[in-house]
Amino acid sequence: MQYKDTSDLEISLLLEAIYRKHGYDFRQYSQAHIRRRIMNRMAISGFADVSQMQSKVLNDEEFASELLQDLSITVTEMFRDPTFYQSLREKVIPILKTYPFIKIWHAGCATGEEAYSMAILLQEEGLYDRTTIYATDFNQLALNRAKEGIFSNKMIKEYTVNYQLSGGKESFSSYYTSSYDNVIMNQSLKKNIVWANHNLVTDSVFAEVNLILCRNVLIYFDKNLQNSVQTLFYNSLINGGVLCLGSKESLRYSDLYSEYQEMDNKQRIFKKKY
């Protein structure tokens, strides 16, 4: 492959270095996004060019882990897109109610806000006791924070609004305890969440599940990688299982589109055909 722009070549080599030294594979991520993150880090850390960062990534563990955090997006919210959660309650919960045991996979859970949202929703629907939520991410620091379940109270007002708009049945404040500038999520929400390190790019199927949520993760991947992750999801779902994507993510261009039935096209909820 020829590179017109030297910095494109340097970025490609840097991603290769990260993969071969540290095992994290960003080579099939959307390039404009990766470039933006790398250029930001370059400016903050005062490097003259991307090649300088490469030597640092190979020889300095601390810098490498910093860069890894830059490349991993952990922006998330509780009950992000309330209309999605409404649809989940109306259309997906009735299906889940027909199963004696329920397994849910939150792929790319970051710091866990959406997994806690799911636990709350299931508790309100009387399903949580027979559910296991596998919440996975490749970012161990984010997972550690998710496990703690401690969030800044700055966001709580927004989360409360989201929760109410999503059709929440209780007072949102009954799900956490305030402590100084933070809130601590109730222990009862954590009991059936299994937090695990899993990389969608390099790891494979680990369970057969009834429901997969992977929202605003695939937008960062190129088409090839999107297709291979879609195959992973397809192979992880039972027949009749449900796949939920982010509101701007589509299955339509995926090779597997015809294997699903649209349950809610606007909210991007799909059911695997029998």
Partner: peptide
């Protein structure tokens, strides 16, 4: 969503 343009003249979205 942030909107970005790729060198192959397609769109990318992010929630950064």
């Amino acid at each position: 969503y942030h909107l970005l343009i790729e060198k192959d003249k397609t769109f990318s979205l992010t929630i950064d």
